[in-house]
Simulated scan of single mutants.
Amino acid sequence: MTVEPTPTDIQMVLESKALNGERPAWCIERQTLVWVDIRGPNLHEFNPADGSDRFWEMPSWIGCHALTSRGAVVALRTGLYHLDIFDNTLTHMAVAPFDSRRFIFNDGRCDRQGRFFAGTMFVALKPQPDVAAPDRATPLRRYEGEGRWSDATPPVGTSNGLAWSPDGKTMYHADTDTKLVWMYDYEPEAGTAANRRVFADLTWSAGAPDGAVIDSEGFYWCAVFGGGEILRYDPAGRMERRIRMPTTFPTMPVLGGSDLKTMYVTSATWKLPPHLRGHTPDGDLFAFESPCAGLASSMFDERFLPAS
């Protein structure tokens, strides 16, 4: 296993102090990093060329997004929408496939064919201590167009770590609650996953698997929320590298930059006591150089967008 880099190898590139930075995606066309603050709730676009970061305030919590030619499809607590960043319009596409009083969208992205998948986590508008743990589990869902969703996996507690192998024939999906990352055989033409088995078991860690990304060699990079590190696994599920982060709460890595070799990592502050937020590196955006290039972010299939 490769020795982790020293802290000087990791740079803070944006002092964002996000409550819940998540779902970074590299836009090749604009050479920018699009990311969300779930609890902001905002969609952000960071430009590393000049250090600027513009954002669009959302009407409800935003779990994830997928890039389009004119902006992004955004998964809000209230449903799925298309945000056109050029004319600043938000167009409704589908209602949320869950009780939005109890759940929000969490990690999600497109497969290699542009199908959008999104999972959920339990975040009730009001405390619900009487709700048993099994009732908090929901499946990963696939958007079918025309407002329809279908179930793609068995239910999990907190959906995270969604990624596909370079050839698109293996799907990875994690449950933060159980600290397990699974792998599936994936049928690219049908968009279906089968034969679930454990890929990585993080029950040894003080943290739990959060967002993830696949590099061009098929290695799986996983943020360990609460554990303060990024782990890199080879396609056989062997840990190849551990990278200590300046934040205890990294949320998701992605490879970007002109050569797709800059690893950007979002982070969160919401787990900190309020008096500490803004006084630690948590919530900022970090970057370091990867030993391997990444893959272009899969764009949303625009045939599923509402007619203009």
Rank of each mutant, 00 (worst) to 15 (best):
S60L: 05
T89C: 02
C27T: 02
F86W: 10
W35G: 01
D87Y: 06
A49P: 03
C27Y: 04
V34W: 15
L33H: 04
L33A: 06
A25P: 00
V36A: 13
R30W: 02
W26A: 05
S69D: 15
H65R: 06
F55I: 04
T68S: 02
L90P: 01
T89F: 05
T89R: 14
C64D: 00
T91W: 00
P48G: 09
T91E: 10
H65W: 10
A94C: 13
N42E: 07
L83Y: 05
V73G: 06
W26T: 08
L43D: 05
W61Q: 11
M58E: 03
P24L: 00
I28T: 11
D87E: 15
G71P: 07
I85T: 14
V36S: 11
S100A: 10
H92D: 13
P97H: 02
F55M: 13
S100D: 15
C27A: 12
T68A: 06
P59C: 12
F98S: 01
G63H: 08
G71Q: 07
P97F: 01
V73T: 09
I62Y: 01
M93P: 14
R101A: 10
E57S: 15
T91N: 06
R77A: 11
I28Q: 10
W56C: 07
V74C: 04
S69F: 05
D53S: 12
I28S: 09
P59W: 15
A66P: 03
A72W: 01
A25C: 03
G71D: 10
C64W: 03
D37C: 08
D84H: 00
S60T: 15
A96F: 04
H92Y: 09
N47Q: 12
F55A: 14
A96D: 05
A75L: 05
A75T: 08
G40W: 02
V36D: 02
P41T: 04
V34M: 14
V95M: 07
F55W: 15
F98H: 05
P48K: 02
H92K: 11
L76G: 05
W56G: 13
G63E: 09
H82P: 02
S69E: 15
S69W: 04
L33G: 09
D99K: 03
I85A: 03
V36E: 02
I85L: 13
T32D: 11
L83S: 05
D37I: 01
R77H: 10
M93H: 12
F98I: 00
T78A: 13
R101E: 15
G40Y: 06
T32W: 04
L83E: 00
N42T: 09
P59Q: 14
H65L: 08
D53C: 10
F46C: 04
L76F: 11
R77L: 11
L43W: 03
A66D: 05
I62A: 12
G40F: 07
N42S: 12
L43A: 05
D99Y: 00
L67V: 10
G79P: 13
V73W: 02
F55C: 13
T89Y: 13
P24E: 06
T32K: 12
A25Y: 01
L83V: 10
D37G: 01
R70V: 07
A75C: 14
R77V: 09
V34F: 05
N42Q: 11
R39H: 14
L33N: 06
